[in-house]
Write a protein that binds this DNA or RNA. Structure first.
Lengths: 159, 159
DNA sequence: CCTATTTCGACAACCTTGTTGTCTATGACA
DNA sequence: TGTCATAGACAACAAGGTTGTCGAAATAGG
């Protein structure tokens, strides 16, 4: 019976990790071994309009240098491509590749499946109400993934 | 209206960060500037019986070396003390100091206050049900704080 | 009783992800 | 045109974690 504030925090963290770890593991099982949540988030942001390193950094609440490092990894693995912006030669326009979209799509379906599992465990309306309440409490915060490691970390759990 | 699995994950993460960041900031405001959630968790584990580095590592699901580093920090700041075990000269027995307990106590009350705030926002029974459902879904996982940075990270937000 | 294995704690080397600071090129604007 | 802001690259460094190795101490077995 968790009723202390600290337990509540741990519960939330546990919930996230439980989903994220399962998703990462499943993604690896499907052949995308080096994809971490942080890569997914970055690609989403790029798709959503953050088409250069500085902007990506702002959206992810990290420095542009950190964003550039992430981009370098994504580019190296073929998930994003870059070319120079014809309108502003300082910029390198980012684009998610077909392979990148494939990862995004798979990730999405994996998360949806996990959510379905939860729905079956506690009931559809209960989960919906949990989400609604949480959304109320959390508000619209700008994700904040300034996590050295963490979301980008490898799993130790079950393959 | 978040209804995708990925949004649910983000919501949980956001909830945790929201609590953890607020607690860290408040702890800093009260004079404990260098305390991070990971330190709190470690002290709790020590109190709960993990009285040596190897054991602490096991409880926190990190290597004993990582645990030793955390202990070194806690010791340096006076939150834990060490002496040699009379029964096993390999061990250094860990003890949370009075100052450490003070931090623990303050942290607890801060988290409880945050939980009270949430309770006022969505209602007591709603929060209780949220916790119960979450506990069902997450189960009794062994915390897992193997987060390079993250819980130990500094805040960028409001002081 | 002596040896073999295990465990503890320490040290070193290294990885990952983040940060700041600096620099050059380019664009925006008065 | 001259000044200022911004993009991206590079370097140096911090925090936290990992593995590998090693000596010392405990424990198990013959």
């Amino acid at each position: 019976m968790p009723r202390s504030g600290a337990d509540l925090a741990l519960l939330l963290l546990g919930g996230f990790r439980s989903l994220a770890d399962a998703a990462t593991a499943e993604l690896a099982r499907r052949g995308y071994e080096d994809v971490r949540p942080v890569h997914d988030f970055a690609m989403r942001a790029i798709t959503a309009g953050a088409d250069n390193a500085s902007e990506l950094g702002r959206r992810l609440s990290v420095s542009k240098q950190a964003a550039a490092k992430t981009i370098a990894v994504l580019q190296e693995r073929g998930y994003v491509a870059r070319d120079t912006d014809p309108l502003d030669a300082r910029r390198k326009r980012l684009q998610v590749t077909a392979l990148g979209f494939e990862v995004l799509r798979q990730g999405e379906s994996i998360f949806d499946e996990l959510r379905d599992q939860w729905e079956r465990q506690i009931g559809s309306s209960e989960l919906a109400s949990l989400e609604t309440h949480l959304a109320t409490l959390v508000g619209a915060l700008p994700v904040r993934l300034d996590a050295p490691g963490w979301t980008a970390h490898d799993l130790g759990g079950p393959a």
